[in-house]
């Protein structure tokens, strides 16, 4: 079952837009300078986030995971979300390296792999919220549908 496409894209843009804004806000509160590099990094984080979660959604729909039983869904979603988080962090850190967007001195910077792991850990909550919101919306829609069919 597909969630209404336009509704889905509105939620994606709103959610990831909010994520970007909160990042800017946090940077300001922490007294970090709002530079061109920071904005580019946030824009990249938002863009890669949208692409990775959209791919995740396509896998969920194509493989019909939403129709499975709770136990099967939990295992599949857990594995796919771990994979998505690592793909997200790996792509993002690689892009930061490629476009030289880090503001930290190369000599004191942590090794590439540990930066990927740290980013994956710190952003895991965002992906967990995304998948839960997606699934909550689906079960809500399904409930409404069966309620109408039953009456």
């Amino acid at each position: 079952m597909r969630i209404n496409v336009s509704g889905y894209w509105c939620c994606q843009i709103f959610g990831w837009g909010l994520f970007g804004l909160v990042n800017v806000l946090f940077a300001r509160i922490y007294g970090q300078e709002i530079t061109g590099k920071l904005i580019t990094r946030i824009l990249m984080a938002v863009t890669v986030g949208i692409v990775v979660t959209h791919l995740l959604r396509n896998i969920i729909i194509e493989r019909k995971w939403l129709m499975l039983s709770a136990e099967k869904i939990i295992i599949r979603l857990f594995v796919s979300i771990v994979a998505a988080i690592f793909i997200y962090s790996l792509s993002l850190v690689s892009l930061f390296e490629w476009f030289n967007l880090s503001e930290m001195n190369r000599e004191i910077r942590a090794p590439f792999i540990s930066r990927v792991i740290r980013l994956a850990f710190s952003k895991s909550i965002i992906f967990i919220i995304w998948i839960l919101a997606y699934y909550a919306y689906y079960v809500y829609q399904y409930f409404q549908k069966t309620k109408t069919r039953g009456s």
């Binding site: 909550i125 839960l132 699934y135 809500y140 409930f143 069966t146």
Partner: peptide
């Protein structure tokens, strides 16, 4: 937010099962 989403997903999942 994660707590609330899990709570709602569980609730609707149970409701769907009961309705079926």
């Amino acid at each position: 937010m994660v707590w609330l989403l899990i709570y709602y997903v569980y609730h609707y999942f149970q409701k769907n099962k009961k309705q079926e």
